[in-house]
Write a protein that binds this DNA or RNA. Structure first.
Lengths: 154, 154
DNA sequence: CATATAGAGTTCCCTTTTGGAACTTATTGG
DNA sequence: CCAATAAGTTCCAAAAGGGAACTCTATATG
C-alpha cells in the first residue's frame, strides 16, 4: 500500500495522518499557530527547502487546513493562514508539545512553554470527555471498529 | 536542514515530530494501542512494506516508545509493546481521531469510534488545564519561547 | 526423507521524495 | 543601470519508500 491511499482509509487515524502525517507538515502548521504567515519567513525559520515548503503549503491548502491570501498586489504576494479546520488542530499540537516536553528531553529547558493567560503559569494539559467529565485514558475509553478486529489492551 | 536534525531542536514540536512525525510511525503506534503486537499482523493490517515496518519498529524501540519482548524461544520471536512513554501518546492519538472524524470526512461512517466505558456513548474529547480547569484554546493559552526566535545563524 | 507452514526479519531493485542551490518574475528604490 | 524583496520553480544528486523474493529456525505432515 502507498501512503497516498490512506486518504480514503476507513480508520480516522489513517485519514488524519494522510493530511498532517507527512514530514514537515505539522511544523508548517506550528509556524502558522505562531503567527508566521509568509513563505520566506517559514523557510528560513524551519530550514526546510523551498521546494518542499511550497509542496506542503499547496497540499495543506488543498486539504483545507490553510488558506492562501494575497496581502499585496503588484507584484501579487500571498500569505497563509489557518482555516477553522486548521485551528482545530490545536489540541493535537498542544498534546504533542506536552508529550515532547515530558518524553523527548533536551539539554536545558524546553524552548517553548505554554502558559495560561489567566495565571501566567505553565499549563498541564489533560484530555477529558466533555459529556462525562472523565479523564480520557485507555482505561476509561475503548475503541470500537465498525469492522471486527482481534482482541485488545495495551 | 535535514529532517534528522530535528531531534535536538529547541522546539518541543520539532523534537516530538522527530520521534513520531515520520510516515507510518503513528499508524504503528495505533496498532499497538489496538493490541496488535506482532510483525506479520501489523504488516498485513497496515499494508506497509516489511522493510519500512522493520525500520519503524527499530526506531520506535530506540526512542523508547516501544519495547521488544521475546514471546517464545526456539525460534526466538519478538513482539512489540508500548512503554510508558508510548502510552503517553494516547492524548495525541485521541485528538487526531477526533480531528479526523470531524474534518477529514469519509463516505459512510468512521470505522473507529471511541466510547466511554462507563456510558458506552461516544466521547467528546476536550483539552483542559489541570491546574485551572480552563479549556485550552489559542485564546486561553499562549506559547512563550525561552530563546528569542532563532534567525537561522544562532 | 521431502515438503509445507509459521513468523520475524533482510536483500535487491526500481520509483518517489527530499536536500541544496541556482534561477525566475514583478516591482520598488538608489 | 544595479540591487533588494519575496514567492515561488527548476535541476540534480541523495535518501527514503514500494514490491517482491529470500533467509533462518523450528514444527507438523505425508
Amino acid at each position: 500500500m502507498k501512503w497516498n491511499e490512506l486518504h480514503s482509509d476507513a480508520c480516522p487515524v489513517a485519514r488524519g495522518l494522510s493530511v498532517i502525517g507527512d514530514r514537515w507538515t505539522m511544523l508548517v502548521v506550528r509556524e502558522c499557530f505562531l503567527g508566521i504567515r509568509r513563505f520566506d519567513a517559514m523557510q528560513s525559520r524551519l530550514g526546510i527547502t523551498r521546494h518542499v515548503l511550497a509542496d506542503r503549503l499547496r497540499t495543506l491548502e488543498a486539504d483545507g487546513v490553510l488558506r492562501r491570501e494575497a496581502y499585496q498586489d503588484r507584484p501579487v504576494r500571498y500569505e497563509y493562514r489557518l482555516t477553522d479546520r486548521g485551528k482545530a488542530l490545536y489540541p493535537i499540537l498542544v498534546s504533542l508539545i506536552d508529550w515532547a516536553n515530558a518524553h523527548v528531553p533536551l539539554e536545558g529547558e524546553s524552548a517553548v512553554t505554554l502558559l495560561s493567560r489567566s495565571t501566567n503559569q505553565p499549563i498541564a494539559p489533560m484530555l477529558i470527555d466533555r459529556n462525562t467529565g472523565e479523564d480520557i485514558t485507555t482505561r476509561t475509553v475503548r475503541a470500537v471498529m465498525n469492522e471486527p478486529v482481534p482482541p485488545q489492551d495495551g
